[in-house]
């Protein structure tokens, strides 16, 4: 731990400070959007979006190296594919008559496969592990700006429309009856989820996105009973997981993404176990029905 703080203070370790500040700032979006994902029960959709991001990254690399669009950074490809995936998934889940999960599962795999095929077609060798498992130490200054912008959008949106989104997440049918475009709000929410997922891919990688999106919110949900309390606690927990994960991974030279996830996962399991034991010890008196 002391080693990590010393490393942070070392002027040569610019990358480490950058990684820490990005992961702490990104926690704001992760916590807020994660709370929506958990309460609305759409973590499966978030998973599908994250795998579609790989398709976008592959396509961007292909366009960059093979077609010669030099400006086509894989990040752009990731953002575009995430948004497209979010809109398709949103429309499917709003309008598909049935078997929504099958369609989304197919999209999940096809997104991944498309990414791999694009990389096959692109000359040169790419290390795709940083996309799959994340590498927070590769984060650049432009990522920092991306994080700040996303935080601002997410915070403004969820503060301004708090009551509306709460109603849409709790009971979209009723919200529609109050003249709210539930469908439009749902799609916007999925698009914000998509942007958050792109950022998560940078931090923990495609494969582990769902974990960092849902675990902080799930733990927060054990202790809170109102949506904004849950968001605030989820943001805080996400910061703790990211910070602790980074410190541990630096100290023991482990990969940062998996370390963060393991820290979060162990916390979640401990909390579940403790609340279970606590509940058994303090079994509630039956609530009177009135």
């Amino acid at each position: 731990m002391i080693e990590f703080i010393q490393a942070l203070l070392d002027p040569d370790n610019e990358f480490l400070r950058l990684a820490l500040s990005v992961s702490l700032l990104a926690s704001i979006s992760f916590g807020i959007i994660g709370t929506y994902v958990v309460t609305r029960r759409i973590s499966y959709l978030a998973g599908a979006i994250s795998h579609c991001v790989f398709g976008g990254i592959g396509a961007a690399l292909y366009l960059q190296k093979r077609v010669g669009l030099a400006w086509m950074d894989p990040m752009y490809g990731a953002v575009i594919s995430a948004i497209i995936a979010a809109i398709i998934i949103g429309l499917v889940s709003l309008y598909a008559e049935q078997r929504e999960d099958t369609v989304i599962g197919a999209l999940w795999a096809v997104g991944m496969a498309a990414g791999l095929l694009f990389i096959d077609l692109t000359p040169g060798y790419f290390d795709i592990t940083s996309y799959l498992f994340g590498d927070i130490l590769l984060i650049s200054h432009s990522d920092l700006w991306l994080v700040v912008c996303l935080d601002i959008i997410v915070v403004v949106f969820s503060v301004y429309f708090y009551n509306t989104i709460l109603a849409v997440c709790f009971d979209d049918e009723f919200a529609s009856l109050r003249g709210i475009h539930s469908g439009a709000f749902y799609i916007v929410l999925l698009c914000l989820t998509a942007l958050t997922v792109v950022l998560l891919v940078r931090v923990v990688g495609i494969v582990m996105v769902i974990a960092l999106l849902t675990i902080p919110a799930a733990v927060a949900g054990q202790f809170t009973k109102r949506l904004w309390h849950m968001m605030a606690l989820a943001v805080f927990l996400c910061m703790v997981f990211n910070g602790a994960g980074l410190a541990i991974s630096y100290t023991w030279t482990l990969s940062s993404g998996p370390t963060i996830i393991v820290v979060a996962g162990l916390t979640y399991m401990t909390v579940l176990l403790c609340t279970r034991l606590f509940k058994r010890a303090h079994k509630k008196k039956p609530v009177s029905i009135r």
Binding site: R41, N163, A167, F170, F174, R178
Partner: peptide, 27 residues
């Protein structure tokens, strides 16, 4: 058909009946 574990207070739920009066949904 509602999620009974959803984190809302009784007041939050009842207030949803007042939505649609303002754009952002302030009460």
């Amino acid at each position: 058909h509602l999620d009974t574990k959803f984190p809302v207070s009784v007041m939050d739920v009842v207030l949803m009946g007042r939505l649609g009066h303002s754009f952002g949904g302030r009460y």
